[in-house]
Design a protein around this nucleic acid. Structure first.
Lengths: 223, 223
DNA sequence: CCTGTCATCGGGCGCTCACCCCATTTCCGG
DNA sequence: CCGGAAATGGGGTGAGCGCCCGATGACAGG
């Protein structure tokens, strides 16, 4: 199955060059062209291409806005941003709009062909120099939300440990000292230590660090 | 000029499979293999490969830490992360460590070959399902980008720790005592304790259990 | 009834941990 | 050239840890 391409650029010469380039690739097929963002949106609805090669800077509806609309109307269509501007702001705007790839016009033709094949598979292609923007920014992602909600109360699944032992283990793996656990459970420090000894003996574990990792594997605590 | 590859995976069968795969590609050449992070770092310095295919979860020095060290020692070497875990946390940690690509082991072989060619050119390849994490994150950079307020007691940044400190932390989180770490790193026990004190002070952490959980969140160890 | 498990407590011993104090060497950037 | 960071060491102290020794009561099952 050939990859169906839609070329979007306001410069006919650029489109012509890409036509030449892709005609040499038997697995790639150009099914349409557009010279502006508005035309591109219409063409996508009519042609349903696999990949849209989208110029970023165009008069009228620009590539960023066109990409946003295309991803709304046809999310399965991949958009590969092609640009003269190696600008950080444009780069992020295109990614936010839904582009799967970003490549400058100064890139080697082979890079463009490779990029098309990558995004056609649903993957992401970012050109080297642009990717640096990403590396710099990824530094502090927005602290993803892990969904716990396993009602970890008790209900023993592990018959090695007793319910009380698992309760103590959860406290240990939470970073509490024996004294703190004793206060929380309203028992003696020695009893807490006794439980810990029994846990370690049963599991053949000899320090708290390994207890933490065991508790995480067993889901006794969430990491 | 062939692309020179270094395979890093602790499972010989996985390496064998990749060897078969790449032998069919005339432009790709495997120049070495390593079965762990520490061995990978040494191999990179000796072989100077173009691309390192790096397993993420490995015993000992894991793929994230190994990538960090490799990018320090040989920034021109591209690292392609290969993983069984399609986990958001690992994904971002590998990108921050300097990986140029991220692809799961369940991906099609052709995708892996394509990814190698992409990163060998200095570009970035991200597999479809993983790339969603990025899209989701890039969408709201403004929301999570409040700098400052670090005195609130929260451990925020990640290059807080030096390379040596991360090395010691990995050992601590692996369950080793100060004595064992000292023997492994061939330094004094007091020096190990000194590093630990500095780590704890920087992170505002006061016991080993919390250090383990920090190391897991940051991908310094893989639980 | 008697044996086992579970949970509860006590003392002690050797070691490590966590947190202070201090110093030297190397190396890099202003 | 000088200052700071990094890595390397040493000493000391109080508390917690890991692991032995013991004990008592409750409770369930063969």
């Amino acid at each position: 199955m050939k990859v169906r391409l839609l070329l979007v650029d306001d410069h006919p010469i650029v489109r012509s060059g890409m036509r030449m380039l892709f005609q040499a690739e038997p697995d790639l097929e150009i099914v349409g062209e557009a010279d502006g963002g508005a035309e591109a949106i219409v063409a996508v609805q009519r042609l349903h291409p696999d990949v849209v090669i989208m110029d970023v800077a165009m008069p009228g509806v620009n590539g960023i806005e066109a990409t946003r609309r295309i991803k709304e109307l046809a999310p399965e269509t991949a958009v590969l941003a092609l640009t003269m501007h190696e600008d950080e702001q444009y780069f992020f705007e295109m990614l936010k709009a839904g582009a799967s790839g970003y490549i400058p016009k100064r890139a080697a033709p082979d890079d463009l062909v490779a990029a098309v094949r990558v995004v056609a598979q649903g993957n992401v292609f970012l050109y080297a120099t642009l990717a640096r923007f990403l590396m710099k920014d990824v530094g502090e992602p927005g602290a993803g939300e892990q969904s716990g909600a396993e009602a970890a109360g008790d209900a023993g699944a592990d018959d090695l440990l007793t319910a009380r032992e698992r309760e103590v283990l959860a406290c240990i793996a939470d970073g509490m000292t024996s004294r703190e656990i004793a206060e929380k459970l309203v028992i003696s420090v020695k009893t807490v230590e006794r439980h810990r000894e029994n846990i370690m003996a049963k599991l053949d574990i000899h320090n708290r660090v390994e207890l933490v990792k065991y508790a995480m594997r067993k889901g006794i605590i969430v990491g």
